[in-house]
Design a protein around this nucleic acid. Structure first.
Lengths: 168, 168
DNA sequence: CTGAAGTTTCAAAAATTAATGAAATTAATT
DNA sequence: AATTAATTTCATTAATTTTTGAAACTTCAG
């Protein structure tokens, strides 16, 4: 397969993949483009390569920077800003886990905590089912939370090495 | 907090939560409603409780059944169909992992496999960066794949027990 | 077989989310 | 301080996704 074609395919499917994970298609495509670019790119480079508007590039780049997946690069002598992606896939993954945990899991756990005690007759089946469901989800979430904390802190090889042993 | 209020909050936020995970809001809300319902509900019950149309309930229920998160229940003597959710949160999680792996990770890995060998000078920095990126993502994906297979097969307590030991 | 109850489908409408591009802002250069 | 380059914002437009509701279909009962 030709490089150009392969690059396009990669960008397109990383975009589709990302859209299943709460990351919008364009953001994921920009990320893909930057991951396969040996050198940092400017906003204009990205606009040209992906055929998208300046505003769109700007907004999505900013989100990527917020997510810690892309860095602003200042090239001496150049007036423009350039951008470069984190290329260590393990760091990409832990970064995403960390951010999503903060944005989604943590708030959900805080809510479940509040919902766990509702007023009323503990024998009522509606109350019983509700509190059972909420507390089991909460317990599960707390476990996941701990596990993800560990994951984020862990060193790549150490983690995968151990996990592989467990799972054969 | 009153039961009714707590139920509404739970349904609303489970919906919001789900929408970050590629599951649409209504589908997640129906799932939430069924998880906290002590008895199976009919399509009409769901329409009424969530204020959504018949068609909408029908389509989303079908998806939930496809995902293996909701079961059709036939109540003897009743003409209507009733629905009930899987309430074991561990099963819910493994079911989701299994489905998403099949729908997303597996196809992505198949693509990466093809993209790994592009024509041309292996010394060219564009080719080099591309193949490096693709193959590192692929290696990572294969690890994740194995790990998730293990996860899905594992028994709840066994898995959490082990993982907790690792992560302190 | 006929009618009523229940379920499914799907084209059209509504709602939501993303993209554009021009204007405003900021930063660097002369 | 004026000019030019680069970046950011955001109201408008476009695209996508979700919801509706009525018609078609299916199933069961009499």
């Amino acid at each position: 397969m030709k490089l150009e074609e392969a690059q396009h395919q990669f960008i397109a499917s990383w975009g589709a993949f990302g859209s299943h994970w709460g990351i919008n298609r364009t953001m994921a495509q920009i990320h893909a483009l930057l991951m396969i670019s040996p050198d940092p790119l400017s906003q204009d480079d990205i606009m040209e390569q992906l055929n998208i508007s300046r505003g769109n590039v700007n907004m999505n780049i900013r989100d990527l920077v917020d997510w810690g997946l892309v860095f602003r690069i200042l090239i001496p002598g150049e007036r423009k800003e350039f951008f470069s992606a984190e290329k260590d896939i393990w760091k990409v993954a832990t970064q995403i886990v960390k951010e999503r945990k903060k944005r989604e899991l943590d708030p959900m756990l805080r809510l479940l905590d509040q919902l766990e005690d509702v007023e009323g007759d503990k024998k009522d089946k509606h109350i019983k089912q509700f509190t059972e469901t909420v507390s089991s989800i909460r317990r599960f979430g707390l476990q996941a939370d701990k596990m993800l904390d560990g994951l984020v802190k862990a060193d790549e090889n150490w983690f995968l090495g151990n996990l592989m042993k467990i799972f054969r």
